[in-house]
Amino acid sequence: MAGKIDAVDLLAVENLEVVYNDVALTLKGLSLRAGQGGITALLGANGAGKSTTLKAISGLLAGEDGAVTDGRIVFDGAPINHLPPERIVRLGVFQVMEGRRVFEDMSVEDNLRCGGVTRPAGEFKTGVERVYDYFPRLKERRQQLAGYMSGGEQQMLAIGRALIAKPRLLLLDEPSLGLAPLLVEEIFDIIRRINRDDGVTILLVEQNARAALGIADVGFIMENGRIVLDGTSAELLGNPDVQEFYLGLSHGGEKRRYRDVKHYRRRKRWLG
C-alpha cells in the first residue's frame, strides 16, 4: 500500500515508526490509507498498535511520551505529523477516544457544546439538532449529567460531540467496547449513516472484526505494529486466516473452541 498517494485518499500513513519513552518501538513501518468518503477498518488484537496509530494521526502522542520517528502522515495531500493536535483538529480530523471520555459532571448539551469550540458559535444550534437526529436518546437526556448515563448513551454522546466539530475524518477507537450486542448493532448502524448521509470519512479501530467489516469498505489487519493483511471487507471476511484468527471459524465455517483458536494463533500464516 505504500508508494504514490492516490488522489481519492483523504489519509495516507506511510512507513510510520512510533517510539515511546525514546526506547519502545511500537509502530514498525506501518502503512495504510483511508479513501475519501469511505469507511476503513483497522483490526487487530490488544497491543497490536491500533490506538497508537490513531494517536499518531491526531497528534496526541506527545502527552504519553510518544513520538513519530520515521515515515509521514498525509491528510488531504499535506503532511500533518509535525503539527500540534489543535491544528490537526482545525483541519477536520477528530478522534473519539477509547473509553468514551465524556465530561461526567457536565450535561449532555454542555458536552456537545465542547465539541464545537473550533466552529463558529452560530453553527451550534444546527449541529446539535443534527446530533439529536442521529441520537434521539441524547435529546431526551440533554439536561442530564453525562456521568449518570449508560455506557451506550455515553458512546453516543462521544460520537455526537465529535460530529459537532464537523469532521472530515472521524477516528473511532473501539466504539463497541463494553457494549451489549444490540447496542453495538445500533452504534454501528449510526456510524454507517453518518458516513453515508454526511459524507464523513471514517477510520474505525476495532477488535470486533465481524461488526467492523460489516460496515467498512476496506480493512487492514495489524500484528505487532505492522500491517500484515489488507483488502476489501468482502475479501477479508472470505479469507480463511481472518475467519480462523478473528472470527473464530474453522475453514469449514464451524465455530472454533477457544483452545483451538489460541493454538492456531501461534501459526499465523502471514507471519511465517
Rank of each mutant, 00 (worst) to 15 (best):
V184I: 04
F188T: 10
E86K: 04
G199D: 11
I5Y: 08
A24I: 12
R33L: 10
R267H: 14
R259P: 07
F135H: 09
S51I: 02
K55M: 14
A34M: 10
T52K: 09
Q36W: 02
T69R: 03
V128M: 04
V96P: 14
R113E: 15
S58M: 02
D105P: 01
G199K: 00
V89N: 14
R137M: 15
L11M: 05
L91Y: 10
L112M: 06
G151F: 08
K255L: 15
V74Q: 01
R269H: 11
T40Y: 05
K255F: 14
Q155E: 06
V13Q: 10
A12G: 09
S58Q: 01
P175I: 00
V117I: 13
G253N: 06
F245G: 13
Q243C: 14
Q144N: 14
L25G: 12
R259W: 11
I57F: 07
I39L: 11
I88L: 14
F188I: 10
V184H: 03
G219L: 09
A211Q: 14
R256H: 13
R265I: 10
E254G: 08
G77I: 02
P181M: 01
T52I: 09
G49K: 07
W270I: 11
V228S: 04
A78G: 11
F103T: 05
V93Y: 11
R130W: 09
D198M: 10
P85W: 00
I190K: 12
G38N: 08
Q95K: 05
V200F: 06
P240N: 09
L203W: 00
E244Y: 00
V89E: 13
A162D: 00
G225D: 00
V102D: 11
A2E: 05
N46P: 11
L171C: 06
E185N: 07
G147H: 01
K139P: 09
N239V: 12
D260I: 01
F135N: 07
N239M: 11
F94W: 08
Q36D: 15
G231V: 04
S150H: 13
I227E: 02
N111F: 04
I215E: 10
G3D: 01
G178C: 05
A34K: 07
V89R: 12
I159H: 05
A165N: 02
